[in-house]
Design a protein around this nucleic acid. Structure first.
Lengths: 123, 123
DNA sequence: ATTACTGTATTAAGGACTTAATACAATAAT
DNA sequence: ATTATTGTATTAAGTCCTTAATACAGTAAT
């Protein structure tokens, strides 16, 4: 999964989301070691300071921890990761339903549109 | 519908989205006159320059037009508005399905979660 | 005719984000 | 022991966004 960065929001915010996603989806498994700040920055074509900022935030949230000079690791707390994943899913669903309701779609419409669209995207 | 502005994205971007939503959902009906730039800016607690920037973009897209010194109006082209609305819906659905798939949910899961969550939100 | 209200434009200032270029201390690898 | 690699910190520059303070021309209202 490559890095998708756009200029319409702060980069460090997008980095936080994408690293979090990699943790929640298992790309970075529990307990695994992350690439170094400099390597991650290179990967994402971003300044090390910016990557550092994102990592510090994820550490603050408890999804990562640092071992002084050996590197940074994903938490072994699989329950915390699971909760983070469910929280993300919940937010996506609520945002989506809210936006569709604002546009004037009711729940039956949403369900029928989404099931036909899901079939489209399977191809 | 009040204005919801956050600091995590440029304000003018959020203004564009929210005015567009008001047009697509009928809060600002086709052909109706908008409040003046200064009034809209006051409403949203934003600088007139910033509001002007958002309005200019919507005008560029054809959803608004300006009559020299009398004010700004929503397009009478109801078909264009309808297309904009459907485009918005499509984007929301695609974004949603993509994000849920990235998290590891398959379509059946998504459908069952959403239908139960929709019932929750009805209350 | 005068006044008030349109959209529009300009300039200056401040803030947040990003990059670049370093530097330092602690530890792993050799 | 020396070297390379960790995370971390600092400073300066540049960009974009936002605000503030004006100003102007055209038109509607009086």
């Amino acid at each position: 999964m490559p890095w998708h960065l756009t200029s319409d929001r702060p980069i460090y915010t997008q980095l936080i989301e994408q690293i979090k996603l990699k943790i929640c989806s298992g790309v970075y498994p529990p307990g695994s070691k992350l690439p170094s700040v400099r390597d991650l920055a290179r990967e994402a074509s971003v300044n090390p300071n910016t990557m550092q900022r994102a990592l510090a935030k994820l550490e603050e949230d408890g999804l990562l921890y640092t071992q002084r000079t050996s590197g940074r690791y994903v938490t072994e707390d699989v329950d915390m990761i699971k909760k983070a994943k469910n929280q993300l899913a919940k937010e996506h669903i609520q945002n989506f339903l809210t936006k569709m309701a604002e546009l004037g779609f009711d729940y039956d419409e949403i369900l029928s549109i989404i099931s036909s669209m899901a079939k489209e995207m399977k191809k």
